[in-house]
Design a protein around this nucleic acid. Structure first.
Lengths: 226, 226
DNA sequence: AGAATCTTCACAGAATCGTTACAGAAGCTT
DNA sequence: AAGCTTCTGTAACGATTCTGTGAAGATTCT
């Protein structure tokens, strides 16, 4: 079931949205100010974010831009008050995927939500190069260097790192790691993941015992920050 | 995935461009002054360069002219401030492929980017001659010589070497090698590739047991460096 | 047929992986 | 805050997998 986050401070609109989307079978969460919304958007893996522009504490613009800069590709649907014609373009320039002007009909909104979700499903593009801290990775050349110095990773370690980066800022469980990195049919103990995480840390962290990039989240799994 | 380099010093524009292009699935790099941009443009193999005219340290004009003089054929899209009408022509005379005047809409820019990439795509010509280390290959004449001395390769070995060079610096799997060099419908064990890699190494490497050009990447495949 | 070329087999060494085991950290209970 | 339980980091080590490479059988070419 698709998860949708709504960031909107006007209660009447928020309620209407929640009802409509819930009726369509989406799992709806909501935030009523910018900061709360921003942190929710960062933490959890929503499939779509509906974002008002005028918000207390942090504007929809800023949320949008920051999320995009953090590499998040979740589709964002902007809500704009009618007068703010200018904002439309700006919103899209910032990385939003679509917008709806208030007041809007539920039908229109649902149509756009569906369209965005459909569009987003497909191209799930893989990262082929990535840079974080003093490290650069090239997943095509299978090269990785730290402070310019090349270091060696095994194929499994590359795959693991790739997975972590693909899900950066998200906490991923050992099981989901096993599923995607090892494959569905292999049976391997979840603890094995820990072992390879440790190897990775040895190689890329400055201080493997207090890691900066690959963070363990007790009881849940791991999270890549970078 | 297409790689695009943006050379632009105005942060707001740069951010908007980066976001938009990234969303479209391009791999975006950027430089914020002329010199940095120029050296990046020279170094890496971008598919498209977006170039502002007014830049610190080195103008877009100069960058464009120098790149063209160096024989680079990468499409260049110029960004010009509206007043600079004259610049348009000049820009194109200098070897730019298209221009957009500020302010521009994201849609327009994306359309032009796509158009340029499509136009440039054309006949991705195969390599017909190549030189690396002390070796020269001519894939048309089927000749190869090392330190000037001609050596003999079988047709399969030529095809394999050609494939490797075509994908130089990238790690290619045995399966992808089989697909392209042997063809889709042939059934041959992946290990067979190893055998022919070994033969190639015997013929072109100085020290086949610790190869310099054809590098094995354990668990993944092979990579040609040269 | 004879020669050249290709494919598979087989084996040995090397690299990598999975599991176990244990100690210390984190969380919970009382 | 002490005591108990659960979870995590990591070293060690045997098991497994991967690669390079001769040898030999199969196929194609002339």
């Amino acid at each position: 079931m698709k998860k949708i986050l709504i960031i909107e401070d006007e209660e009447s609109i928020l309620l209407a949205l929640e009802d409509n989307l819930a009726l369509e079978g989406y799992e709806v969460s909501s935030a009523t100010d910018g900061e709360q919304g921003f942190s929710m958007a960062k933490e959890h893996g929503y499939d779509l974010i509906i974002l008002d522009i005028m918000l207390p504490k942090m504007s929809g613009f800023d949320i949008c831009r920051e999320l995009r800069q953090a590499g998040m590709t979740t589709p964002i649907l902007m809500l704009t008050a009618k007068s703010q014609e200018v904002d439309k373009v700006l919103g899209l320039e910032l990385g939003a995927d679509d917008y709806v002007t208030k007041p809007f009909s539920p039908r229109e909104l649902l149509a756009r939500v569906k369209a965005l979700l459909r569009r987003a499903k497909q191209p799930k593009k893989d990262i082929d190069r990535y840079r974080f801290g003093d490290i650069e990775v090239d997943f095509i050349k299978y090269e990785i260097r730290k402070k310019g110095k090349s270091i060696y990773l095994t194929a499994l370690e590359f795959a693991l790192l790739h997975f972590l980066i693909k899900h950066k800022e998200q906490v991923v469980s050992r099981d989901s790691i096993l599923d995607e990195v090892w494959g569905d049919e292999v049976y391997v103990l979840p603890r094995t993941v820990d072992k390879h995480i440790a190897e990775l840390r040895k190689k890329i962290e400055d201080k493997p015992s207090s890691p900066k990039y690959i963070i363990g989240v007790r009881g849940v799994g791991y999270k890549f920050k970078g």
